[in-house]
Every structure is written in structure tokens, then in C-alpha cells.
Amino acid sequence: MNCEYELYDPSWCPGCGNYMIRTALKQALEELNIPPYKAVIVTGIGQAAKMPHYINANGFNGLHGRALPPAIGIKLSNKDLTVIAESGDGDTYGEGGNHFINTIRRNINIAHFVHDNQIYGLTKGQGSPTTALGQITTLQYEGVKVEPVKPLALSLTMGAGFVARGFSGDIPHLVELMKEAILYKGYAHLDILQPCVVWNKVNTYQWYKDRAYKLPDDYDYTDFDLAYKKALEFGDEIPIGILYKVERETYEDRFEFIRNGKPLVDVKLDPMDAEKLMNDFY
């Protein structure tokens, strides 16, 4: 079985963090021996969301803010596929906020990689849900006037069983996080710090590099209170690594016919199976 992922020429700006994230994604999938025809990358709209066009896996490039809903539909229909939802901070935490919250509640077995560059890239430099308070942008001339979303604290409080943060500038570390997220049985939230070299002159590669530090080896990722503290740490120091990881029952396992049955896509359809239902109406 061929587990190598072919790459295509992207239209990302030179130096964009998306390149490193793609390199890590390719390596993670290959090291896990998941062949391209068994993996699906589901995205919304944005620069990050173009990923399915630049790597040879199954792809669903949908609508802005709507990466998660099709990812859910795909996973529930064919549990044998590895489903990765991937999109930017605006797509995920802004337009798609309601889907984000409810996907965490559902705990479906998908990995979610959020390319978080704290700015809108595709639409040219407006403030995103994670842009810092006061930061001047191409739209917020006097600075952003709303508090940023705290994505990891949000997913923790909604009950996510896997919460992590990576940095596009540390590819080997990011590969390990991606592999853990894909292998995790349930919804895995991985927020990936990534510079936007054109539109975000504040959160640059160097800015992240100066602040990102790896969680120590003896860090207890089953400690919720500790994880919550780490999730709020976003200033002079920013922790990267797995903040929280515990086992949780998945949504699909709560349905006997999915847990023990064939993937829904392989179930043979026969209208006569339903004929008995008519008995209720005599």
C-alpha cells in the first residue's frame, strides 16, 4: 500500500507558516502509515483552507466557517476513514464558532488542526478572533477593540479530551503532536501558531520563537486545573505541547450499530427492510 503523499505547488506567500504545517502533516500521515485514499482533509475557506489542493489526499474544501460539519458527516458515514479538519483562526473561532463548540460536545473521532496566525490573510489583514486587543490592522485603524478568543481554554471548558498547541517553526515537535491528535480516539484540538509574513507584523516568526516553550517531560496532562492555567498563558511565554489528554467515550461509540457494525457506507440498502414499519399505521 502506498503511504506517500504527493505535494502540489501552493499559492501561499513565500515564508508562510502553512508550508511548515503542510510538511508536518505529510510526515505525520506517512509515519502513521495512513494511505492517502484513507485520509480526508476537510477545510473551510482561507489560506489554510486551501490545504486539500496542495497535498494528495481525499479532500473536501467547503465553505468559510464550515469545516467541521462535513467532517462530522464524513466520519459518521465511514468510520474507517481518518478525518482531519483543518482551517484558520477566523474560519474556526469566528464564522464557525457554533460548530466548534458543538463539535467538542459531540466528541467525534476527528483531528482538528487550526492554523492560528492571529490575522485574516486571504481577505488581507483584518483582525481575527485571536488578534490581540489594541493591535492595528488594515480594518481596525485605531486598534482591535475586542478581547481575543482563548481557543484552548474554550475547548477545555467545553469538555475536549485532547487539547494541544504547536508551533509551525518546530516541525519535529509539530509532527509528534499531529500524530498524537490523529491517534487520539475522539475530538482532538490542535491550535498551531503560525506567522503571517505579509499581514501580521506583530506576531512574527521571531515573536513566536521568543515565546514558545515546550511543556516539560514531567508535565501532567491529565490535570485539568493545570491545563486550564497553561491554556491561558499567552504573553511573554507560550506553552506548546499536549496541555490536556484524557480518555472520553466518543459520540459514535454511543450508537451500538456504529460501534459494532460496518461503516454506514458499506451497509446494503433494501427497501423491503422497512416494510414492517407500516404495521404501526393499520
Binding site: R66, P69, G73, I74, L76, L81, N98, F255, F257, L264
Partner: peptide, 27 residues
């Protein structure tokens, strides 16, 4: 009947989920 019935967050999500499901190959 082995049907997954899902009450979801909003109708925006509903049709997007349905499209994910039909992409994967179920009705």
C-alpha cells in the same frame, strides 16, 4: 433500522453535515 439521527446546533451545520455524509457515500 441503523440510521444515525442527529439533532445538531443549527441548520447551517445540518446541510453541511449532510453533504459530508453524501460525499462519504451514504444517503
Amino acid at each position: 433500522m441503523g440510521i444515525l439521527v442527529d439533532q445538531i446546533e443549527d441548520e447551517v451545520g445540518a446541510l453541511n453535515m449532510v453533504l459530508g455524509a453524501t460525499y462519504a457515500g451514504v444517503r
